[in-house]
Write a protein that binds this DNA or RNA. Structure first.
Lengths: 230, 230
DNA sequence: CCGAGTTGACTGAATGTTCAGTCTAGGAAT
DNA sequence: ATTCCTAGACTGAACATTCAGTCAACTCGG
């Protein structure tokens, strides 16, 4: 019989190695998904990437489906955590918002799992047919919108932002970011990362009523994240 | 060798039947893709739908890839044509814009190929890995943005709209619509079609400076779409 | 008008490959 | 010696694509 490893992590702590193995495989899966795409991801590829056998992968994740779903969940969680981390490092609401927008728009200094934008496309497509994935996506998206919304509320309370319906704004910005993410992921020459960033920021600044200029190494809003050059 | 049927439609009229067959198959493919999703679309399914054999499908489209690519191209073209058609039926720029937005947001009275929104997800995902599809998407998107842009320019000249950078607006709205399309396609309860429509229209109205209220059967902007069928 | 030859449309039955998922048996830890 | 781990070899099914023709509609020389 199987240990029926629970998806919430801890399982039995007796074997630290087992959990490590699982995590390693999830990460390997993510790498392969990014590189080859969802549809082209074989268990054997993941196994190879993780330096083990296909049989072992199945041993840990009962099915391929479960592996992929877990990989996606992991990716989303990392993404969210990264967002929280970045926001915490910035004091002003406008700065936090800029950080969020930069995260989806500017590809450099990839967040934990590389190529998140690329994965999203597969993610969405899969969510359309796969209930479990759909629910992961829905939750993840919800969480993200709530992050934006509460950020806006905070900014309004501190007087940084105009007062407007924060939910409307969160939903709109979130949609716009998703839309730009597509263009960026697909490398559309007409709408590159920098342009998406600019347009998103202009939208936010305009709606929320704060000043924003391209981060010229001295703007009031701080440069988004670390060093990045056009 | 093959007749090498040109992709721009009319081709040579010598054999009406062959082209009909092709078109029929493309439409069948589209149906299957919508129903089962891209990855789960088998040639046999398409053949069955079209009332023929898998071998015949391959006979017309050398490979499955070609069939799918052509199906996507067809879908996009229909979508675009539908857009043009709808716009032509409305006099004001604001009305046209509303029509466009309604088309992506409101699911009712599906445009020619049903479930376009759903297909987009697969479309994007596939574009990420498949050069040919990528180019189809890029062109299609470009065309769409240009449509919006020239619409805005026209509205500005007639004095309906504020003056602003029409390209910036087109790119932003287009992104927002894509983003909402995802939520709608996936049936996210937090952002349903009506809400997406409202938020998009508010964005447009706000940016372009025209009045807009929910179409109350007598608004200045006409109700989005009406009865239409081939 | 006719029948041998040609060609395009079409099919059912292979073929061959590619994988997800077993199975079995060996190794390591307890 | 029992219980996890692990992997190589297998199984079985799902499919895309090919093959070897059949069929019907034509042409065209006589």
């Amino acid at each position: 019989m199987h240990k029926d490893v629970a998806m919430d992590g801890q399982a039995d702590v007796t074997s630290g190695t087992a959990d490590q193995r699982r995590a390693q495989m999830v990460r390997a899966a993510l790498d392969v998904i990014v590189a080859r795409g969802f549809a082209e991801t074989r268990i054997a590829d993941v196994a190879q990437r993780a330096g083990t056998s296909a049989a072992l992968v199945i041993y840990y994740f009962k099915t391929k489906d479960q592996l992929l779903t877990e990989a996606i969940r992991y990716s989303e969680d990392s993404w969210y955590a990264e967002g929280q981390r970045r926001m915490a490092a910035v004091p002003t609401a406008a700065g936090k918002l800029e950080e969020i927008i930069a995260m989806t728009c500017l590809p450099e200094a990839d967040t934990g799992p590389a190529g998140s934008r690329l994965i999203w496309l597969d993610f969405w497509a899969r969510a359309a047919r796969h209930v479990e994935v759909a629910s992961v996506r829905q939750k993840s998206d919800q969480r993200w919108r709530e992050t934006i919304q509460s950020l806006v509320l905070a900014g309004q309370e501190s007087g940084e932002f105009h007062v407007l319906d924060s939910l409307d704004f969160a939903d709109s910005l979130s949609a716009m970011l998703d839309g730009f993410a597509i263009q960026i992921a697909l490398g559309d020459p007409a709408v590159d990362a920098a342009r998406a960033f600019k347009l998103s920021m202009c939208f936010a600044a305009h709606q929320l009523g704060f000043e924003w200029i391209w981060p010229q190494s001295g703007g009031m809003t701080r440069e988004p994240s670390s060093g990045q050059q056009p």
